[in-house]
Design a protein around this nucleic acid. Structure first.
Lengths: 341, 341
DNA sequence: ACAATAAATGTTATCGGTTACATTGTTATC
DNA sequence: GATAACAATGTAACCGATAACATTTATTGT
């Protein structure tokens, strides 16, 4: 591998001139520029960017802590990040953390070992919770999707509470009185927010909130299936199920159909996220659309602002949601349907 | 940010001793080791890994060219890579290339600018096709999933031809005589291989291969939906559709159901990949399971072998597939079903 | 033609580690 | 007690680029 000195020797100039030819060509006379360019081509010289990064102290790397890349929603967020990062000359170091705190702490430390300039956290866990930070001003971290309640961290989120209320309102308007909810893990703020929105709307409609109609899930298809199974064996009056994401909704539908129930005639099901599969399921899923790519794009841009010192204080961006009504939700049945078959 | 010199000063030793304390502690006396350790803690010293990488010439970064992270199958492959890489101290630089050749060439060049040690390519395109290579021996690149026909590149793949033949055989055994196929993009070798396997099995069964029963798709849900639409309007004798991936199969099922067809009573549909959704679709999808995580893991391990100089020649690994029979395929209807409703 | 100024190019310290080699200190052997 | 052998530690070159500063060359004005 050739280096800048070999190029300088071959071109008969100094290393500074070679460097300038590449960085600020306007400072170099056309004649020498040509000589240098020719030498670069002749040697097939490529600058060692590791040396540049080391010297400049800027890596142009961003660590992204992804709970699981296997999630379709995150895949879209990643795409948005990728594009925004590439546009600004940054590379992403994607880490599939499986929601493990220790793993996230380890990888977040890459900004301390000069392997990355900043961190994007997609989960509501502060990987820097064990250290100082406060007096240091803004840490180079932004938080997207799940809201982390650290005031000094820029955040991109959805008003999950409002969105969940909108969905609940939709179900209430269809006449549903006994609505079950399949929740995400209790540790997730998303779950809390969406549950609060659910409660808000029930109260608004004068309906009673029942703890027994809340079922646990973990955002996977299988957990939706399992939760629906429990609903069938426990709650015989339910006419609608509000799932906190589309995967669980599709899993639940699978179980309900296996029990011979018709959707939405016998029971309505709604999701959250509007993943690609939602439109093609049977029936197509009523859900909340989130601007996933925009989440990623905004997160990266906020981070770059922080890195450039542009961000004076933590910005909190809230992106719009959209209620997408398809055919998995319909009017509540006139007569209670027997769920145990 | 403190550096090794400050640590050395505080501990009252030389920088070499500090370096040794971290790299080969057995060479340092317990007494000095303690002094150094204390100084490191006191200053909260973290070695600048960018400097280490620069000095050593090894980045421990691997560029992964992913056609699209939004694909559920690739998400699993990525997870496998992530784990294998972490175990060996490597980080992944994931790039969502959208199948763009120029983008892939650009990012693959990171190994020439010392930003990465090697490349994993998940698509059948050689990003180094424009340069020398041959005489250089093994380039630090491995190819997974889609087979790239460069003999000097280690590869992990499935015997797609055999797997497609197995699926076709399954359909033939159920009595299907007119089988349509929804293909991937013609540019993809996967498509060619699976088509050849399809032909093989038809020939084996003494059935005729019909060009008119081949329909184009691009591995997305929507393209499966659209292809099914064309099948309905053009081919009235088809009793089974073999889709080259699960997404297209699910898209096709959506369209067929919209036409009032029952699956598999009226028409059978099969997929390829066994993504998580396949099990929960209605009906559950008959498909080919691929060991996606193992693809990723094997790819990374092969690459690390190449990087360590262990690999003398290009290894070609072929992983096993599994035919998963669910309920989207069934006996061919006794009477031809009218597809145009 | 000559000083003053601007443009082009050169010299070299520097970033933060690693490591070959040099030096000093310690223990073992006869 | 002298010397060899080894352990512990120190010194300084080095990786490849950048950029502050120094120096040379070209241009301008009078």
């Amino acid at each position: 591998m050739s280096n800048i000195r070999e190029v300088a020797d071959l071109a008969g100039v100094s290393v500074a001139t070679v460097s300038r030819t590449l960085q600020q060509p306007e400072l170099v006379s056309p004649k020498t520029r040509a000589k240098v360019t020719r030498a670069i081509e002749q040697l097939n010289y490529k600058p060692n960017l590791m040396a540049v990064k080391f010297r400049s102290g800027k890596t142009h790397n961003i660590v992204v802590l992804v709970p699981t890349v296997a999630n379709v929603f995150f895949a879209r967020v990643i795409r948005g990040m990728q594009e925004a990062a590439a546009a600004e000359g940054y590379s992403l170091l994607l880490v599939n953390t499986m929601g493990d705190n220790a793993t996230e702490q380890n990888y977040a430390r890459m900004i301390h070992t000069s392997q990355a300039d900043g961190v994007v956290q997609l989960r509501a866990f502060n990987p820097f919770n064990d250290i100082d930070a406060d007096e240091q001003g803004l840490l180079p971290m932004v938080n997207a999707c799940e809201i982390l309640d650290t005031p000094q961290c820029p955040t991109v989120s959805l008003d999950n509470r409002l969105a969940a209320a909108a969905m609940t309102e939709h179900l209430v308007e269809l006449g549903h009185q006994h609505i079950a909810m399949i929740k995400g893990p209790a540790s997730s703020p998303l779950t809390r927010e969406r549950m609060l929105g659910f409660k808000d709307a029930l109260q608004e409609a004068g309906l009673k909130y029942c703890e027994e109609l809340m079922f646990d899930g973990d955002f996977t298809l299988q957990s939706g299936y399992d939760a629906a199974d429990r609903i069938l064996s426990q709650s015989h009056t339910v006419s609608a199920i509000f799932c906190e994401n589309d995967e669980m909704a599709l899993g639940a539908i699978s179980r309900l159909k296996a029990a011979g129930l018709r959707i939405p005639q016998d029971i309505s099901v709604s999701g959250f996220d509007n993943i690609a599969f939602a439109k093609f399921s049977d029936p197509p899923l009523t859900t909340i659309a989130q601007p996933a790519e925009e989440f990623g794009e905004t997160a990266i841009n906020l981070l770059i602002d922080v890195l450039k010192g542009k961000a004076k204080r933590a910005v909190k961006v809230i992106l719009p949601y959209q209620l997408i009504i398809r055919n998995s939700t319909g009017p509540a049945p006139a007569q209670p349907v027997n769920l145990t078959r």
